Amino acid sequence: MVGTSEILATGAIRLVEEAGHSVVELEGEIDVALRGDAGAALANALERELPVIIDASRVTFADSTGIAFLVQFVTIGHEEGLQVSLRNPPQVVVEVLEMLGVHGMFFDA
């Protein structure tokens, strides 16, 4: 049984280091339970100083923490001079980005 202070992760965030770029793979539910994984992926990808692809094709849900991770990743990446792109986000993610008015950070208008 899980205590009320424990949060079970039902998703994953992992960094895949490929030649010439980094891929941050998002899978399942991207929420507060993955905060530590998100921070580690962000730090490690930025450390590589290569373009970053955020692959959201397997996301089933993203709460405000998940969307904040995407926005933070793009913002910090651009501040560091890195190209950051979002690949294949599901409609549920696109709709939240549009609703929050940050769609333009990820896609050309």
Results as ranks from 00 to 15, higher is better:
Phe69Thr: 06
Ala33Met: 06
Val24His: 02
Ile7Met: 03
Leu50Trp: 06
Gln83Glu: 13
Leu50Ser: 01
Glu25Thr: 08
Pro89Glu: 00
Pro90Ile: 07
Ala109Trp: 13
Leu97Asp: 04
Asp108Gly: 14
Pro89Ala: 01
Met99Gln: 12
Gly28Thr: 04
Phe73Thr: 12
Val52Tyr: 04
Arg48Gln: 09
Asp37Met: 06
Val23Tyr: 00
Glu17Ile: 03
Ala9Cys: 07
Val92Thr: 15
Asp37Val: 09
Gly20Lys: 04
Asn44Ala: 09
Val93Arg: 06
Ala43Arg: 15
Ser5Trp: 02
Pro89Thr: 02
Arg48Tyr: 12
Pro90Met: 08
Ala56Ser: 07
Glu95His: 14
Leu86Cys: 09
Gly36Glu: 14
Val52Leu: 07
Met1Gly: 13
Ile30Pro: 07
Leu34Phe: 09
Glu98Ser: 04
Met99Tyr: 09
Ile53Trp: 10
Asn44Arg: 15
Leu86Ile: 05
Leu82Asp: 03
Ile53Arg: 07
Glu27Arg: 15
Ser57Asp: 12
Val92Asp: 09
His21Ile: 01
Gln91Arg: 15
Glu27Tyr: 11
Arg87Ser: 12
Glu25Trp: 08
Val94Met: 12
Met99Ile: 10
Ala38Asp: 09
Ala9Ser: 14
Asn88His: 15
Met105Pro: 00
Phe69Lys: 08
Ala41Met: 12
Val24Met: 09
Gly3Leu: 12
Val92Met: 14
Val74Gly: 08
Arg58His: 13
Leu15Gly: 05
Ala109Gln: 13
Glu80Ile: 00
Glu29Ser: 10
Ala40Ile: 14
Gly39Met: 09
Pro51Gly: 00
Gly36Cys: 08
Asp108Val: 11
Ala109Phe: 13
Val59Ile: 12
Glu17Asn: 13
Ser57Lys: 14
Ala41Gly: 01
Thr60Cys: 11
Thr10Val: 10
Leu50Ala: 06
Asp63Val: 09
Leu8Gly: 07
Gly104Lys: 15
Gly3Gln: 10
Gln72Pro: 00
Ala9His: 05
Leu34Lys: 03
Gly66Phe: 02
Leu100Pro: 13
Val94Leu: 15
Phe107Ala: 00
Thr65Gly: 08
Met99Ala: 15
Phe106Met: 07
Gly101Cys: 11
Val52Glu: 05
Thr4Ile: 12
Val96Cys: 04
Ala40Asn: 11
Val71Asp: 08
Ile67Tyr: 03
His78Asn: 14
Gly3Tyr: 01
Ser5His: 11
Gly36Lys: 11
Ala9Asp: 08
Leu100Ser: 11
Pro90Asn: 01
Ile53Gly: 05
Val74His: 10
Glu47Ser: 13
Glu95Trp: 10
Ala38Val: 01
Glu17Leu: 07
Pro90Trp: 01
Val59Ser: 10
Ala12Gly: 15
Val24Ile: 15
Met99His: 10
Leu50Arg: 13
Gly39Arg: 10
Pro90Phe: 03
Glu95Pro: 04
Gly66Lys: 04
Glu18Ala: 14
Asp108Pro: 00
Gln83Leu: 14
Glu29Pro: 00
Gly11Tyr: 04
Phe61Glu: 02
Leu70Asn: 05
Ala62His: 01
Leu70Lys: 00
Val16Thr: 13
Arg58Tyr: 07
Gly77Pro: 05
Ala33Leu: 04
Leu42Gln: 08
Glu6Asp: 14
Gly81Asn: 03
Val16Asn: 11
Gly77Lys: 00
Gly66Gln: 03
Leu46Lys: 04
Glu79Gly: 02
Ala43Pro: 06
Val16Ile: 14
Gly104Tyr: 12
Val84Arg: 01
Glu6His: 06
